[in-house]
Design a protein around this nucleic acid. Sequence first.
DNA 1: GCCAACGTTGGC
DNA 2: GCCAACGTTGGC
Length: 188
Amino acid sequence: MAMAGKVQKMQVKKKTAPAAKPKSGPVPTAAPYWLMKSEPDVFSWEMLVARGAKGEPWTGVRNYLARNHMRAMKLGDLGFFYHSNIGKEIVGVLQVVKTAYPEPTDTTGTWECVDVVAVQPLPNPITLAAVKADGKLAKMALVTSMRLSVQPVTVHEWAHVCELGGLDPKSLKGKPASKAEAVEKTKA
DNA sequence: GCCAACGTTGGC
DNA sequence: GCCAACGTTGGC
């Protein structure tokens, strides 16, 4: 299993979690799109691309809000892949291919993960600085909730980032969760 | 390496 | 259930 962020390095705490059912938490209103962060030296976009159609379990999330966002994800949902710490830029588009399920290594029954695959790289990666400097993006959770590792993205933000990044959102829309072939092409 | 932001923990 | 102390994230 791979790491999807610095949080992955954390020990799994033996917290005395009430034996809450994994499904019992609040489920926020589903956002149209998402953004998921990872430190590229731990788990990078290139590594996700290399996983191909198998994708990767997005493990290591140890924040309730981030977990709840993963719970709200639907099969086929799209999200941005953001490189934190190194690069600090949005580098690609990923897709949810398996909805939230208990994280196998978590013995507390508290944490969950989703499986994602790489869909397309952003021809022009969008840096955090560019996001902050753009009036249409300055309110993104990426800016306002800096430390949240899994966050919602609005339709407007999605469209604007895609435009700036050189991606036609329509080329992603409605793609089946089997678009890993596109990934294979981007590797060549 | 520093430190601001902020989520979590634990004393009361 | 409040809130101070503590720990972590992540930009700079």
